[in-house]
Amino acid sequence: MKNEVKAAIAFFRVMIEHTQKGYEPSPPHILKRMIRPLCSELAKIEQRGTKNDAWDFVEGLSAECRRLR
């Protein structure tokens, strides 16, 4: 798996984890530490990724969603 795909999935995981905490993280924290890093990795996948990378990304997100159940 390419580094940007792996990183994008990991930042999605970090976002999920922030919904499980017993407090409400600040919006700037979510933006700076999760959303912006995720956007940056998505831009790399969009620019130089293959269809396989896109599929790996979707599969990775689904795997993270399954862990929530």
């Binding site: 999920i16 905490k21 407090y23 600040s26 862990r67």
Partner: peptide, 20 residues
Amino acid sequence: KRRVGDPKFYVGTTPGGGLS
């Protein structure tokens, strides 16, 4: 009393097995 903001330190177990 709702906790809003960013704490100095946090550690917590995660649903999939790990730590946040």
